[in-house]
């Protein structure tokens, strides 16, 4: 049986983790390679890097980080943040990323998804969508950390991305992100009901039960979480043991 995936996400800026594991025993708490290795050895099913570097000049640092991580972590690595072109995607894949997550650029130009899927295969193209509740059972696509509306319906955009060859949707609820009150289950369910490709739920997880709900009630194929892992509230294996005891299929 295919297992539900648990994906820790690390925010990386200028090659350093800015929101990462808060463990005291780390030699270098800002080293993304070291943190990724801890997660992959601890049973993470994938690792996600989100590059929040503002400027283009620092892309080389990101590529170097991806390369060093891929050399040591033999689990899939997804990299997102500031991906604008086919060349950006190629560079990340060549550096060792397994999947590349596209956000704003996919909204501005949905054909980028099509082109990228044709060139590199759907398996490595993740479309990241930041969603915000706008009306009863309606969510809008937002950019710039939820500040700007893209004037698009989330479901319509996700279906377009699927049609254009996206292999997966990374769905973040901007309403829930940072609240620790659980994933937006209605949003997640409406997406997983309609899409044929896997959906990764993100934004709002605070407890083990939230993770279970994202999978069982939301129908997500995978769950992404940042702070519950980084601040040492739960380890990956604790999450998996809990899910296993709740009869959610996970890789132990």
């Amino acid at each position: 049986m295919l297992k539900k995936r648990i994906i820790p996400c690390l925010d990386v800026k200028n090659g350093r983790v800015v929101k990462g594991i808060n463990f005291v025993n780390l030699v270098d708490a800002g080293n993304p390679v070291e943190q990724a290795k801890i997660y992959s050895d601890g049973g993470a099913d994938e690792i996600c890097f989100l590059d929040i570097t503002a400027s283009n000049e620092n892309r080389d640092i990101l590529l170097d980080t991806v390369q060093k991580t891929a050399e040591q972590c033999f689990v899939p690595l997804t990299v997102g943040g500031g991906v604008r072109s086919i060349q950006d995607i190629r560079n990340l894949l060549m550096a060792g990323a397994d999947k590349v997550s596209i956000n704003t650029a996919a909204i501005k130009n949905p054909d980028l998804i099509k082109e990228a899927a044709l060139q590199f295969g759907s398996q490595c193209i993740v479309v990241a969508i930041d969603a915000k509740h706008v009306a009863s059972n309606k969510w809008g696509v937002f950019t710039h950390g939820g500040r700007e509306s893209a004037e698009l319906d989330v479901l319509e955009f996700a279906l377009l991305a699927e049609n254009n060859g996206a292999g997966e949707i990374l769905l973040t609820s901007m309403d829930k992100d940072g609240t620790k009150s659980g994933y937006d289950l209605q949003l997640t369910k409406s997406m997983t009901n309609s899409l044929k490709i896997p959906v990764v739920a993100s934004g709002g997880v605070g407890t083990l039960e939230h993770i279970k709900d994202g999978i069982v009630k939301g129908g997500a194929s995978a769950v992404l979480a940042a702070s519950i892992f980084h601040f040492g509230e739960f380890s990956i294996s604790q999450v998996k043991e809990y899910l296993n005891s709740e009869n959610v299929p996970v890789r132990i």
């Binding site: 049986m1 297992k3 995936r5 398996q123 997966e168 490709i197 896997p198 194929s221 995978a222």
Partner: peptide, 29 residues
């Protein structure tokens, strides 16, 4: 409820004795 691509970790079932599958751990994800 099953999505495509078949993406993630799944357990394999071995068909016959084969040198390439020696010494795998009990759970074959």
């Amino acid at each position: 409820e099953l999505k495509l691509p078949h993406m993630g970790w799944n357990e394999i079932v071995l068909k016959e004795i084969n040198p390439l599958f020696q010494n795998l751990s009990e759970d074959k994800h």
